[in-house]
Each structure stands twice: as C-alpha cells, then as structure tokens.
Design a protein around this nucleic acid. Structure first.
Lengths: 244, 244
DNA sequence: AATTTTCATTTGTCAGACAATTAAACGTCT
DNA sequence: AGACGTTTAATTGTCTGACAAATGAAAATT
C-alpha cells in the first residue's frame, strides 16, 4: 500500500488509488480506521494537504467517511445502496445529457431491464406493490393532471413494478436509467389520447402482475416500450433541430 | 452557483456540490473552463486548499479534468463510457464484497439482464460476436484448462453475448455485475462434468443467437442461470462457515 | 520569417499555524 | 464509591504564504 514512484505530479491521485485498492482487496475492512492524516503524510512522505486531497477523492466515492475529534479520523465506509444510487444517477444523467448515449438507446435499455424484472415481479409481488401500481394507474387517468405530475406518477408506477422483483441490484440499475430519462420525459406533451393508451397498458401490466403472469406482463411492457419510443421520437427531432 | 451557508464545516463538500449541480444542469457545458483555483477561492470566499479539495472530489467522479500551465485549469469533462465502466465496477465490487448484497441476488440480477439482452442480441448479432462466442465455447471444452482460464473464457463469452445487443448502456450495466462477481466465480471449482454441462449450454445459446431465435436463447440462459446458482451454493456455504 | 528566449499564468505541492470538535482522562463533590 | 463537571489531547477542517513544475503566449534574436 506504499507505492509511490518518483513522479511528483499525481501524488494525491496515486495515494487515493493505493488506499482504494487496499479497501477493495480487503486489506482495510469495513469500519477500520485509517491512520491519521499526519501519519499518512509521514508514511507516504508527502504533506498533509496532499493526503487530504487523496482522502477527499475517496470520500467523493463514499469509500470513506471522516469524523472529527479525539477518536475521529477516516473510516472505511460500508457502501450503502443509497450512496450507490446517487452515484449511478449522476453518472447516467451525465452520460445522457452529454449525448454520449442517445435517448433511444437509454429507453431501449430501460425497457429491456423492466422486462427482465417482469417474471420476478410477477412471482414475488406483494399487496403493497400491487396497490401502488393500481393507485398510480388510477391517478394517471384523472383529467386535469399536469404533464409533470403524469410523468412523476409514471415513474412511481414503474418503480413499484421493479421493486416488486425484490432484487435491489435491479432496482438500483433501473434507478439510474429512469432518473436520467426524467428530464427528457418531462419534455413530452402527453395528449389525452396517448395518456389513455398508457393507462390502459399500465392497467394491463398491473393485472398481469396480479395474476402472476410474467409472460403477459412482458408482452404489455413490450408494447409500452414501443409506444414510448414513438412518443419520444417527436421530442428527439425537436431537440436535434434546436441543436443544429 | 454561489451557495455557501455560514456552516464552516463542509465547505469543500458544499463547493463541490455547487459546481457539480452547475455541470449537471448544463450551466457549465462540456470543455468549459472553470475559473482558476484562485478565482474560485475568491468567489466562494474560501482558501485555495479548500477549493482544491472540492475539485479533487469532482475529479474522482470524472466530472472535471485538470491541466497545468498558462492556458491550463479545470475543464468540464465529457464523461466517457470507459470512465463510467470503472466507477460502476468499483461500486459493484464493493457492494458485493461488503455483503451489502448477496451473491444470489447479484447472480439473479446478472442473468435477468443477460436474458433481457437475448432478444436484442439475436436480432443484431454480427459475425464477429458469433465467432467470439463459438471460439470461447470451444476453448472451454479443452481439457487441461485451469479454473481461472475457464472463468475468464466464460466472461468473454457472456461479454460477447451482451455486446451483440448493440446497446452500450446494457453492456455498461452488465460490466459491473460480471466484474464484481469474478472473485467469487474464481472460487468455484469446475468439475469436468459441470464444465461439460456449461459448454453444452453455451453452445446452445450460441446456436440460438445464430438462428436469431431470442426465445430459445432466453430458455438456455435461464437454464444456465439456475445451474450457476446451484454451483455457487457450495461456495457460499463455505464462505459463510469461514466467516462464522 | 523562423527560432529561441523570456515570461506570466496555473496547477501541484509543501510547511506551519489556528479553530472546532470530540472523547477520554482527570478531578471534585456528594 | 459513584456521579458529574472540567481539562486535555488528538484529529479533522481551514487558512496563509510560499515555491516548483508545466505550458502556452509574447518578446527578442538571428
């Protein structure tokens, strides 16, 4: 863990990497206290500000947490899903907004994921998940709903669908895809006709999940995926125009 | 972008957040140069080391890159898939190694994702992807292969399968799941019998993809998922023992 | 005009200092 | 002896000032 070549240019990055590797390979177990900044500075033969910059890098990745005071210091953090969510969403949002990936690609990935969840959700869904899905589908049918509220309800519906699969890894990966797409989804104007179609599909999906029929759920999700792509098409064209 | 309450405890974190938000919401476009550290220090009314710690946090997330020299400075980074890969893998590895998620959960998510790819892969696979899959399946049937080499080939096979879907978002999400599971997969001792079974399934999957038959590919993937879980069961029990 | 030199700007690092926080050690009182 | 308040030491968070290294632009020279 004391690797430091004679290249005095990326010291803080090198130190961060050394500590990160030690954490990943298990040399530093969860809740282990790292040496104090002064001690680290001695070990790596650098100054304290340099050590601090390295620690901040790790803190940004939620790899460590720091605490002030006599028994304080930097501790290896047990990475929580909550933390991972945030990073995933930030990353996905940027990948999408910087045009590194297209809306169509993100949309395809999102629905592929949701369809992957469908059989699991059908098997494991609880009354809670079902109730949420039905409640959101009903809300979406209310007239006078703003586009944003409709969108938010849509997200809630799909979140319930995915959470019903009872697999936090899938929930976590979906979170990134869905959240990142929110800004663009909000740009879509949902006509009464399109809303009606979406609500119908949502209801069919909920029914399939209730009946524990994964195949039917998959089918309706597939239809919904196609329809969403269709609706988004207009927005994408509009966006491209503004850009060019 | 100049939000700074009178709480002088998390200054670098607050500054990092302010800049991060500015990047995400588009106020700071890609390749835009941030003010110099000295200027930022003036704007936020903090010292330069504090600004630097904030910038290091952003650098750790690949949100900015820095360059020395007269025309240097910190620039908003165009987030590359490559960067996102690395972060995703680090995060996934830690979530798994810190027991925040079980192997079974990760495995389920991984195969659910692969099955989501199957129809797309069947539709879009190129000769290259097919050749890779067949080559790896063949390699896996060679006697005298070490468990590690078998595992590596297994990863290559699945990577080709996923990449064939032509959706970088799915490839990216799978990368995290697969890489994170590597250490545990490497602990599995593959008997000649189990290898044979896996190779058979791989061949069937490749055949299905070649025939552009998504349903068949899904079926064989499902069988492979079940078998992998079965094989892993022993390793998990072993691991639990060592722990308890 | 081309090349070299100088220079200003900016990041990377260092040294030393002080404030804020926190828990443990200590002392005091009941 | 035990409970409670005080001191103290350790540690992070921040500041000030400084120098080194890199780098492109401007100036000087050929």
């Amino acid at each position: 863990m004391k690797i430091d070549p004679k290249n005095p240019a990326d010291l803080s990055a090198q130190i961060a990497k050394a500590i990160r590797d030690a954490i990943i390979c298990g040399d530093l177990p969860v809740d282990e206290r790292l040496p104090s900044e002064a001690e680290l500075a001695d070990q790596f033969e650098v100054s304290r500000p340099t050590v601090r910059e390295a620690l901040k890098r790790l803190a940004a990745q939620s790899l460590i947490r720091t605490q002030r005071g006599a028994t304080g210091g930097a501790f290896v953090n047990r990475l929580k899903f909550e933390d991972a969510y945030g990073q995933q969403i930030t990353t996905s949002t940027l990948l999408l907004s910087m045009n590194e990936i297209s809306f169509a690609t993100a949309c395809e990935a999102r629905y592929a994921l949701e369809r992957a969840c469908a059989p699991l959700s059908a098997k494991r869904r609880t009354a809670d998940h079902l109730a949420t899905m039905r409640a959101e589908a009903h809300r979406q049918s209310q007239p006078g709903l703003t586009d944003e509220a409709f969108c938010a309800s849509d997200v809630a519906f799909h979140r319930a669908l995915v959470d019903a699969a009872g697999n936090p890894v899938l929930s976590y990966q979906l979170a990134g895809a869905v959240e990142a797409m929110q800004p663009l989804m909000n740009m879509i104007t949902f006509s009464a006709r399109s809303r009606e179609k979406i609500v119908t599909l949502h209801t069919q999906i909920a029914d399939a999940i209730a009946a524990q029929d994964g195949v039917a759920a998959d089918m309706h999700l597939s239809a919904l995926a196609g329809y969403t792509q269709e609706l988004a098409q207009g927005v994408i064209a509009q966006r491209q125009e503004k850009r060019g």
